[in-house]
Design a protein around this nucleic acid. Structure first.
Lengths: 146, 146
DNA sequence: TTTGATGCAAAATATTTGCAGGATA
DNA sequence: TATCCTGCAAATATTTTGCATCAAA
């Protein structure tokens, strides 16, 4: 039923996919760009965005639009939840088993066509908890602790 | 323990708070600005952002950073979940009772300092489901159906 | 009066897009 | 060879901020 758009496996696309799959850090486009540039110095940020979007549409990576201001990308396609540090923005997998029964419950109670759900925990990571700087709700732009 | 910063209840702040409380639409800053401008034509978008930020820090409105690209604001402070239309971006309350037991479970399994969690469902709202236009993952910037 | 708040404009961020040339199938 | 893709730069979109002035307490 789906009309998959034809796509070409370019060097850029392959390297981006390999990188996102190898990272367990839920990196941002900018971080991915920096890492990929170590192998392909001329690759542009626009190309990274375009490829991440396409790979996400093809279901090869997961786009996380629910973890703070900046979008992040996950190479782990197994259904799981996330835990985000509200101080440094770092995202890790949450230690909680999937509970897909929510879907049926909500489906039976709404006239929306339910497609999925996201469960995200927020907290302070060990590094930020022990740091002196106060939690001021700002500057949660980039990972301080990679 | 908390050192609350002193703040003044200006006309702008009061009108913004009243509006967000009266809306059940989880509006964006831009939408709130447009609505407030009907009563205060000279109010700036920057003032709207500054006040929403301050009201959120004071716990008078809830900032939703987990519902797609654009930030939204909720005047309903009761703990509840959300359901977002992936086509038009509209956000409604999810028909599901709070299940705070997750928090303890995750707390016992992580070294993060757990502060809270968000549960968001995604789907197609009735209006979008029946519309002809295909779901193309773009243009989810503004509510088509208010 | 004191000092927090506003309006305005510019800056900072994050993401998308037009286009001409390049690479893949 | 057809057309998808890339690099580059410009354009969008969203949010934040500096500053002189205004206004709440």
């Amino acid at each position: 039923m789906k009309t998959e758009p034809k796509s070409r496996m370019t060097n850029q696309r392959r390297v981006i996919l390999e990188l996102v799959r190898s990272l367990h850090t839920h990196a941002t486009a900018d971080e991915i760009h920096r890492r990929v540039r170590e192998r392909m110095p001329r690759i542009s940020l626009g190309t990274v965005y375009r490829n991440l979007e396409l790979l996400s549409a093809q279901g090869l990576v997961k786009k996380l639009e629910h973890t703070g201001a900046q979008r992040r990308y996950d190479g782990n396609l197994n259904f799981h939840y996330h835990l985000r540090c509200v101080q440094c923005g770092r995202v890790v997998d949450a230690p909680l088993e999937p509970m897909p029964q929510f879907l049926e419950l909500v489906r039976s109670r709404t006239d929306f066509d339910i497609l999925g759900y996201e469960l995200e925990f927020q907290g302070l990571c060990p590094a930020c908890r022990s740091s002196i700087q106060p939690l001021d709700k700002k500057g949660i732009k980039e990972d301080t602790h990679a």
